[in-house]
Design a binder for these strands. Sequence first.
DNA 1: ACAAACAATATGATTTTTCATATAGTTTCG
DNA 2: CGAAACTATATGAAAAATCATATTGTTTGT
Lengths: 164, 164
Amino acid sequence: MTQQTTKAKRVEETGRAPGFVSDYLLYLLAAASDAASAQFHAKVRKAGLRVPEWRVLACLADTDGAMITQLARRALAEQSRLTRIIAQMEDRSLLIRRSDPADGRRVRVYLTDSGRALAAELVPQAQKHEAALMEMLQGNEGAQLKPALKSLLAALEAQEDWQG
Amino acid sequence: MTQQTTKAKRVEETGRAPGFVSDYLLYLLAAASDAASAQFHAKVRKAGLRVPEWRVLACLADTDGAMITQLARRALAEQSRLTRIIAQMEDRSLLIRRSDPADGRRVRVYLTDSGRALAAELVPQAQKHEAALMEMLQGNEGAQLKPALKSLLAALEAQEDWQG
DNA sequence: ACAAACAATATGATTTTTCATATAGTTTCG
DNA sequence: CGAAACTATATGAAAAATCATATTGTTTGT
């Protein structure tokens, strides 16, 4: 019983219980994503952006002139949400919207100079933060993490292509 | 230029661009978490639960009688949000709240029989779904994923304990 | 060329989530 | 003991996200 009390106390303190959840892949993914993002997302907000806005900015820095639907996928946000985020970012002159001459339904989104400047400030910070995270994971666990995630993503996308 | 056109077209189709984002750890974590969860979360909603409710249910199935703050951490939700989720789940008789006799500020949450029954239905489904995901990742990438995530989480929590 | 089917974006209404702070209970320490 | 500091939960107001669907433009098949 001394054993039990000690264990219960440790569980209480660490917030980590044994059992199903703490070894469940979807929990580990969501918890790791949340925890790993927390610090950097705080910086993003201090830079005056909300998280989805930062994602859009980063996506556009990679691929300028993307359309709303693509941005929604890449920035992990829903389409109608993206439409509104883009509108707000346009109001703040971080980007501009232009309808695609080749297909009038499409709206292509381009960074403005100030949007590009903000991206040029934040992307290196993101990379620095990422490097710090990777350094926490020295050893082969660290080396395997990104490839494993990519391969999971690839498998899931392949599945989607067949099914939905 | 034939090369370029082909590449641009593939990017357009797959929605995956080269560049910073597609190799960025925080993107990979968030995207993998979203994609991996999507199917199962659809089942959760068909079972009449929202995602945070399912998480609470699973946490309580592991550790009954947890307090709100603990549940918030484990279910990856903010405290005030948890308070409301718990209230709604209590209205639906999935759980009951009891104030802790040892410390009147604390509210301990216990599954009801019907809450436990729902958990007993969903947890095995979650495990089955998880097994299917792991099967997609045969080879050592799969074997390394969970340990890598756990070790990242552990490192981040250790950091939090020092800093804030 | 025209209608039907399809695709991309936008919008109104609602729900979910967050933020700041209030409330209630507990511990610490002079 | 009693005030100050602290902890756990609750709550009102505001912001963010989602859902269903409208709108606009394009493609397909006849």
